[in-house]
Simulated assay, not measured.
Amino acid sequence: MSDISVRALGEDEWQTYRSVRLEALQESPDAFVADHTDEADEGEDFWRARMARSARLIAEVADEDRPVGVVSIGDTADEDAEDAGQLFGLWVAPQWRGRSVAASLVRRGSEVALERGVRHLYYWVGTENARGVAFASSFGFRPTDDRRPMRTKKDDPEAEQEIAMVLALGEDRR
């Protein structure tokens, strides 16, 4: 198995993020709110602004000439949660799924969040995605009572719900 390294991208690496983000949108269109065509048309200013909003991490392996996974760490929408952050946009190239890439991204993402002063890291998972819930639970994410309609580009009132799962970071893991 190849060694997996995860690193945060700098703002000047917007083209690297753009490339892996567009690959994710194209390969897994139903997993994201965004649309590949719309984002592919965006220019440098859009991508630089996006890089400034959140930490963007990529997974790389020595025998690949491109990133094999991506995740973002950013703020939550809850203004009352000063010490909370959010893990989102997790994607792994299909040929690398099941090979610890996602786990490496989540581990490093948790470290980055903690370095930024985050004490509670949220991750939204589809309530019908048993594999996703089990994956998040394996890291210590615990379900909350917060639910919302699945955020996809389809406006379907019968759409699946998402559950907010939370991971306590730092020494006090309660």
Rank of each mutant, 00 (worst) to 15 (best):
S28L: 09
R7I: 09
D156N: 15
E162A: 13
L167M: 00
S104Y: 10
G109D: 07
D75P: 02
T144E: 10
D12E: 11
R21Y: 02
R107V: 15
T16Q: 14
N129E: 04
G43K: 03
R131H: 09
S137R: 11
S19V: 07
G140E: 10
S138K: 04
D75H: 04
L90F: 08
R48Q: 03
T37M: 09
S110A: 15
P29E: 01
V125S: 12
R107H: 14
S19P: 00
G170R: 05
T16S: 12
A49D: 11
V92K: 12
R7F: 01
D63N: 11
E64R: 11
P157R: 14
W14P: 09
T152R: 14
R108M: 13
G98Y: 01
L90V: 11
D41A: 13
K153G: 05
A62I: 03
P143S: 03
A59Q: 03
Q26C: 08
S100A: 04
V70D: 02
R151I: 08
A168G: 02
A77G: 02
R99G: 02
A8K: 11
V71Q: 12
L169F: 07
I73F: 01
D146F: 07
M150C: 02
I4G: 03
V70Y: 07
D3E: 00
E64I: 09
Y122H: 07
G10A: 06
A52W: 00
R66L: 04
I58T: 00
F32N: 04
I4S: 06
T127Y: 05
D41M: 02
L169R: 08
V112R: 13
V71P: 03
D3W: 08
Y123Q: 06
E11Q: 10
S72G: 12
L57N: 13
R99A: 07
P29T: 04
E27P: 00
I163E: 03
Y122K: 10
W96P: 02
E115C: 13
A164N: 05
A77R: 05
L114Y: 12
L25Q: 07
R119S: 01
L121N: 08
R66F: 03
Q161S: 13
G69Q: 14
L169Y: 08
R173A: 03
L22K: 14
A8D: 02
D155M: 10
A77D: 05
W91A: 00
G43H: 04
W91N: 05
K154S: 02
A24Y: 04
A62R: 07
M165L: 15
E171G: 07
R18E: 09
D3S: 03
E162S: 07
R173S: 09
H36P: 07
Y123I: 03
V118M: 11
V33H: 10
R173V: 04
D38R: 06
N129Q: 08
A24W: 12
E162Q: 15
P67E: 13
E82I: 00
R99N: 08
Y123V: 12
Y17G: 10
A130V: 12
G126P: 00
G170V: 05
D156S: 12
G126T: 00
M150E: 13
R50M: 06
V166D: 01
Q95L: 12
Q86E: 15
R107A: 15
A49R: 14
A31F: 15
A130N: 13
D172N: 07
R56G: 08
E60V: 05
I58D: 02
W96Q: 14
A93M: 11
L25R: 11
R116M: 09
A59R: 02
R21G: 01
V71Y: 11
